[in-house]
């Protein structure tokens, strides 16, 4: 009697989505933080409607990565406080399904916040952030952050410093993703030729795949006791 991978992952994802749709705890905190972050950046960097495109894409991605750290910490803390990770570990399902289920939830919530940030930036700085390729970058970048983050949050939840440690261990590993995402966004926004930005998107895709494979393999070792 083994629960199939997909059924288990979807069950966990639906559970998280249902709980979130009720409390809006994660999206609320991440969204508000992201909004404040964008405002602070625009004061600090004196961004205006003629803001440099590089600065705007930097603000977008820095905001997304900090918001995702906030959300990941909270999401893991919620599982931990109730001891609920044990429930998932007690069930007859592959560990990778737990990782995938948690990842889907984290990814969806972060992506929604990322889209909201992109929308706010579009209005504030008059930068057209909604095109199919930019959405692609947004999806791939967010996926990369949440893959690394879901794995590492499960790890730092077992340490003494917990919430402080996640950004320290996650940011260095997320920087390659961040570089590729920022460059891709900048080049697409400045309407560069496809040959300029497509390599960045491929790098992003390759990194996503590497992290996903490592995450699925290594999660098992992170959650056992």
């Amino acid at each position: 009697m083994k629960t199939p991978f997909l059924a288990a992952a979807m069950a966990i994802f639906r559970k998280d989505a249902l709980a979130e749709s009720r409390s809006r705890e994660l999206i609320g905190a991440m969204g508000l933080f992201a909004l404040l972050d964008v405002l602070i950046f625009s004061f600090a960097l004196e961004l205006n409607r003629e803001a440099r495109i590089e600065a705007v894409s930097g603000v977008l991605w820095v905001t997304i990565i900090f918001a995702s750290i906030l959300g990941l910490n909270r999401s893991m803390a919620m599982e931990r406080d109730q001891g609920n990770l044990d429930v998932l570990l007690l069930a007859p399902l592959p560990r990778s399904a737990i990782f995938t289920g948690k990842l889907l939830g984290n990814f969806l919530f972060t992506l929604l916040v990322g889209m909201a940030v992109a929308f706010v930036i579009t209005i504030l700085f008059n930068v057209p952030l909604f095109s199919e390729w930019l959405l692609m970058v947004l999806v791939m970048g967010t996926a990369g952050f949440t893959i690394v983050g879901t794995l590492l949050a499960a790890m730092t939840a077992q340490t003494r410093a917990r919430e402080t440690l996640l950004p320290i261990v996650m940011l260095p590993l997320a920087v390659p993703l961040l570089l590729a995402a920022v460059r891709g966004t900048t080049y697409i926004l400045s309407e560069a030729a496809q040959g300029e930005w497509l390599p960045w998107l491929s790098i992003l895709a390759v990194l996503d795949i590497i992290y996903l494979v490592l995450g699925i393999i290594l999660f098992e070792f992170v959650v056992e006791e």
Binding site: M1, A8, I12, G83, V87, L88, L90
Partner: peptide, 28 residues
Amino acid sequence: IGMVAHKPLLYENLTAAENLQFFGRLYH
């Protein structure tokens, strides 16, 4: 195995029925 631990191991933001529905899915 069915386990009752120190902590209740329930999801606070779900109803009792939803919790049980979720556990049913976990055990297929």
